[in-house]
């Protein structure tokens, strides 16, 4: 069990999401991903791969820019004047090296697994005849949905678990994705977009609820005397 001192050291980190901006960033990124998928679907069938990549990247960059811009505005005009300003220490070189290595390993593992499936070779032990073709790359969308839903309860517990209504949001995510998986028509690529939109919307809804609760329970402080 953490000591009181360790709990106190953890408080500034929890403060970073006191206004729901962390959830807002996740929600906007998911919407950016869904937007990228819809824009790509609007492109003509014979559109080049380069154009598709540009469209996807543009949608993601737009979402990221909006996410960080809005976050900054909320911090500057709402959070800092109410409950104070905090700057966090920059992560050291060791953290960056570890993070990059871990991510490269995960990416290589996923690509390697997809390659194995596509070439029907599974250690020569099982002859897999899956005709998934390009749909194998849609596994990344499934992974994205699973990760973004699984991350939510972890997020709630790590940010103090103060807002019990968030467990209802969590349940809505799981049930919503499940219902869409069973009822949504269309092929795999088309199916993946509504759940990403739904999960993104619920993350954004959670962010709005957190921000509302924060604004309701705090008041703008008087400026410090000079």
């Amino acid at each position: 069990m953490k000591s009181d001192l360790q709990n106190y050291i953890a408080r500034p980190k929890r403060y970073d999401n006191i206004d729901g901006t962390g959830e807002m960033v996740v929600g906007l990124i998911l919407w950016g991903y869904a937007l990228a998928g819809y824009l790509e679907a609007l492109l003509p069938q014979n559109a080049s791969t380069r154009l598709r990549v540009v469209v996807i990247l543009a949608a993601l960059m737009l979402a990221l820019g909006l996410a960080f811009g809005v976050r900054r505005a909320i911090k500057r005009f709402i959070t800092w004047p109410r409950t104070g300003y905090v700057a966090y220490p920059r992560r050291g070189l060791r953290w960056w090296i570890t993070t990059v290595i871990v991510r490269l390993v995960v990416i290589l593992a996923v690509v390697g697994f997809a390659f194995l499936i596509k070439t029907h070779h599974v250690m020569g032990m099982v002859n897999v005849n899956w005709n998934l073709g390009p749909k194998v790359w849609n596994l990344r969308v499934v992974l994205l949905i699973i990760i973004s839903v699984a991350a939510y309860p972890i997020w709630i517990s790590r940010t103090g678990g103060k807002h019990r209504w968030k467990w209802i949001v969590c349940l809505s995510m799981v049930m919503g994705v499940g219902i869409l998986a069973v009822t949504a028509p269309g092929d795999f690529g088309q199916w993946a977009r509504p759940p990403v939109l739904l999960v993104g919307m619920l993350w954004l809804g959670s962010a709005a609820g957190t921000l509302y609760s924060y604004v309701r329970h705090t008041k703008s402080a008087a400026p410090e005397p000079e």
Binding site: P12, K13, W80, G84, Y85, P89, E224
Partner: peptide, 8 residues
């Protein structure tokens, strides 16, 4: 736990 913070 922080780089800097304000009085508030």
């Amino acid at each position: 736990a922080v780089k800097e913070c304000d009085f508030l």
